[in-house]
Design a protein around this nucleic acid. Structure first.
Length: 433
RNA sequence: GCGGCUAUAGUUCAGCGGCAGAACGCCUGACUGUGGCUCAGGAUGUCGUGGGUUCGAUCCCCACUAGCCGCCCCA
């Protein structure tokens, strides 16, 4: 026997009943996005590698070691090979599409959402997969369309709070920070390096490494002994120019007015180079080491970084896998039941049963169809597992047009005329769900 | 990429250097057109893969693979 092929590391199959939860999350997200007047965008699963190296940043972990990249072969002698990459995130692709289709020329703010798989070659863990699913949105446009307005930041954050509430996620925390403009960043980094130089030798090994490779990440360190040192380091907030500071204050004021709760976290640092000014993360305690439900921020210079016009924007990506984990921990998902199971009593009633099932399904009912080769006892057992009610279809029923209907939740068995059956089952559904 | 733990029935998990186990689930019957509760029976495994030690390995050792936990990073 040949060895069976298995799903590759870090990927998995999603099966019922879990997929019902995935669908519900997507449906809720679409509803909420619609209320904020966002439209859907679908970008390709793979892009030119340069999009990510220039957009996300050559030095980020994502680009430097986590991308699925390959050389796509040339089709003809005259053609060159092309370096392609499975998208590790979707913001760069959306901004690429924004530039390519000259969406900025409309003069309108573009409000786009996406739902789809992303790929990063990390070591898999709970809540961290190599193919994972993000639900995200971007607000982007020319400055005169209001894309830089702090009100946009606040609206996006308020929308996220509403979405998590609509999904039934309990106990989330919004962490908020401003990492400053493209101009603020180098100035702050210089100050940070200066402050780190005399103290870094007293910090943990990770911090000593981070001080070299990515000093911002030192702020993220969780080692208790390092905390007093980190508290003494310069804060990003103190290095912001007046415009950034004012912008961030306006975001906070709008959130206060809307009644969205948040905590300021001056150490919140994001791992993608394109983030500027407002950055945020929604976390949930139940997720363990991967506690970020979603993350995002402003990216005022991304369009220009990949060759487009000035197009400030703000966006986020939600880890759908992590929403599923959180919701599963809150309430266990039960298999969904059909409204009714049509059970032909003998094989002679099979054809009539299919016809009845067709009628009921056309009225919008969820119907399981049994088999006349089953004994009634077995049909009852089966139906009780799959459906809320059973409709027995035997010789008597067909002759009289009065069908035997039993409701498993009450145990009550009645005779219902065929004409009234659909209405009866629909009414029962309102009670049971 | 680094460190640790784990891998046995469909599922959750016991187990022991000498015939492979439980619970739940599944199938059959008691009950030939009535489920749930009960009772009686039954089926199910390359014990993750490959090597080694041993008379003998599911068990001990090594490697690999995968999952989980932590680091890193992020969604």
């Amino acid at each position: 026997m040949t060895t069976p092929v298995k799903a590759v590391r870090g990927t998995r199959d999603l099966l019922p009943p879990e997929t019902a939860l995935w669908s519900r999350i997507e449906a809720t997200a679409r509803e909420v996005f619609a209320r904020y007047n966002f439209g859907e965008i679908r970008t390709p699963i793979f892009e030119e590698t340069a999009l990510f190296s220039r957009g996300v940043g050559e030095e980020t972990d994502i680009v430097s070691k986590e991308m699925y990249t390959w050389e796509d072969r040339a089709r003809a002698q005259s053609e060159k090979t092309q370096s392609l990459t499975l998208r590790p995130e979707n913001t760069a692709g959306v901004v690429r599409a924004y530039i390519e289709h000259k969406l900025g020329e409309s003069g309108q703010l573009q409000k786009l959402f996406y739902i789809g798989p992303q790929f990063r070659r990390e070591r898999p863990q709970k809540g961290r997969y190599r193919q994972f699913f993000q639900i995200g949105a971007e607000v982007i446009g020319p400055t005169h369309a209001g894309s830089e307005s702090p009100l946009r930041d606040a609206e996006v954050l308020e929308m996220l709070a509403s979405l998590l509430d609509a999904l039934g996620i309990e106990g989330w925390t919004l962490k908020l920070n401003s990492v400053g403009s493209a101009a603020d960043r180098p100035a702050y980094l210089a100050r940070l390096r200066e402050a780190l130089a005399p103290v870094v030798s007293q910090m943990c090994a990770d911090c000593q490494r981070r001080a070299e490779t990515n000093p911002l990440r030192v702020l993220d360190c969780k080692v208790p002994e390092d905390q007093p040192i980190i508290e003494g380091l310069p804060r990003i907030a103190d290095s912001l120019d007046a415009a950034s500071r004012e912008h961030f204050a306006a975001v906070c004021a709008a959130l206060d007015a809307a009644g969205v709760e948040y905590t300021l976290d001056h150490r919140l640092v994001r791992g993608l180079d394109y983030y500027t000014r407002t950055t945020f993360e929604f976390t949930h305690g139940g997720l363990g080491a991967q506690n970020a439900l979603l993350g995002g921020g402003r990216y005022d210079g991304l369009s220009e970084a990949i060759g487009g016009p000035k197009a400030p924007g703000i966006g986020f990506a939600i880890g759908q896998d992590r929403l599923v984990l959180t919701l599963q921990a809150q309430q266990q998902t039960a298999a969904e039941r059909a409204d009714a199971c049509i059970a032909p009593v003998g094989e002679a009633q099979n054809a009539a049963a299919l016809r009845l099932a067709r009628e009921l399904r056309r009225s919008g009912l969820r119907i399981e169809l049994g088999d006349g080769s089953f004994r009634v006892r077995k049909s009852m057992e089966l139906a009780d597992k799959l459906a809320w009610q059973i409709v027995l279809l035997g010789e008597d029923e067909l002759a009289s047009d009065l069908l035997t209907v039993k409701d498993f939740s009450t145990g009550v068995q009645t005779k219902i005329s065929r004409a009234d059956l659909a209405a009866h089952l629909l009414a029962a559904r309102k009670r049971t769900t």
